[in-house]
């Protein structure tokens, strides 16, 4: 009995101590209180959404002196968590997929502009790329457009319904404009992960694949005799964005080389003299009913963080381009961007 009383005391005090360890939510004086959870639209903790979110959330949590945590729950669960919590304890970070998924009509994607409040943008991943085998007959995107116009079938490996497809759609649209009727020669090979896309290229089941600078740069440095060797043919990012990348670029491909594969060197027409480009931007999404004071608080805090300049170094180290726009600017910018892509997607589906 003696021992059990002793343990009882021990347990009791341990328990109290553990409660005392819990942060007191009232310590923060802004409208954002308590523990904050930032859900992201991806389920991967190794991917770019998670990385960008954790860089920004780390900085925010230090600045606001709040417990903040990034959880990779995936878009469907993330939206559900966000829907249920108008208090501001749940925030979301996602990228252009949120509206592209909706524009492509993918099940489960709601229009983010009407169902949620779009928050500030935080960064761009400039790495979205298209690659061909190193021994491919196509030297440039122009070659591909021309070949499709001449009736050759070109198979493009993409993951359907979003960021990976938008470049393909734009290319198809460009072929439609330059060689009306020939756009059907560009066919999508729908697939999933980067490894599946690479595999299709190795197996000669695709002529062109979607990939990224980060994941595929080393493949572009393999000798041509290697079955795995690839060549960049198109980076969808704007040259304006790429200009801000570190001068050394990534791996052993420097910025100048990367710029050769982006507009205006590569032309994918959107009609008239407009050229297609796509920057994959990461931004916050909030519950529609969330207190506007929190929106302002996050905007202001991010403003401060970006003004200090330390976060940019961290982002650039991982080959992300810092891109802070406060909520109101981000909303109009992203809406305008979404409208632009909507016209391309619609013109293809006609």
């Amino acid at each position: 009995m003696k021992t059990s009383r002793l343990t009882f005391g021990l347990v009791g005090s341990a328990f109290m101590a553990s409660l005392a360890l819990a942060p007191i939510a009232a310590a923060a004086d802004g409208p954002l209180r308590g523990n904050v959870r930032v859900v992201i639209g991806s389920t991967s903790t190794g991917g770019d959404t998670y990385q960008n979110a954790s860089i920004v959330v780390d900085a925010l949590s230090k600045k606001l002196d709040l417990n903040m945590k990034v959880d990779a729950v995936g878009f469907s669960s993330a939206y559900r968590a966000l829907d249920r919590d108008p208090r501001g304890n749940t925030l979301m970070i996602f990228h252009d997929q949120s509206y592209l998924g909706h524009l492509y009509g993918v099940e489960g994607y709601k229009d983010p502009f009407t169902n949620y409040t779009v928050g500030p943008t935080i960064a761009i991943n400039p790495g979205n790329a298209y690659l061909v085998p190193k021994d491919s007959p196509y030297q440039s995107l122009d070659d591909i457009i021309k070949a499709a116009g001449e009736g050759k079938t070109i198979r493009v490996a993409i993951q359907p319904g979003g960021v990976s497809e938008i470049g393909y759609t734009a290319l198809k649209n460009a072929i439609r404009i330059e060689h009306p009727g020939a756009e059907d020669n560009l066919v999508a090979v729908n697939t999933g992960s980067q490894s599946d896309k690479n595999q299709l290229l190795f197996d000669d089941q695709a002529d062109l694949i979607n990939g990224s600078v980060q994941a595929n740069e080393q493949y572009t440095r393999l000798p041509e005799s290697d079955q795995k060797a690839m060549r960049f043919i198109w980076l969808t990012a704007t040259s304006e964005t790429l200009q801000q990348a570190p001068e050394n670029g990534l791996g052993q491909t420097d910025r100048a080389t990367l710029l050769e594969y982006a507009e205006p060197n590569v032309k994918v027409t959107m009609g008239g003299d407009k050229n297609f480009a796509f920057d994959k931007e990461f931004f916050f999404l909030y519950n529609k009913k969330m207190n506007p004071a929190i929106i302002k608080q996050i905007d202001d805090t991010l403003e401060e963080i970006y003004a200090e300049g330390a976060i940019q170094k961290v982002q650039k180290k991982s080959f992300f381009i810092p891109d802070f726009k406060p909520s109101s600017k981000a909303q109009s910018h992203l809406k305008e961007k979404a409208d632009r892509y909507e016209t391309i997607i619609e013109s293809i589906n006609k």
Binding site: M1, S4, T7, F8, V11, G12, A14, F15, S18, L21, A22
Partner: peptide, 23 residues
């Protein structure tokens, strides 16, 4: 005696799990 043991366990186990995993 059994009830006291169960009670201690009911306090200790979740508290420990909470401290380790949540904190």
């Amino acid at each position: 005696r059994k009830i006291i043991v169960a009670g201690i366990n009911a306090l200790l186990a979740p508290a420990l799990a909470w401290v380790v995993f949540a904190k």
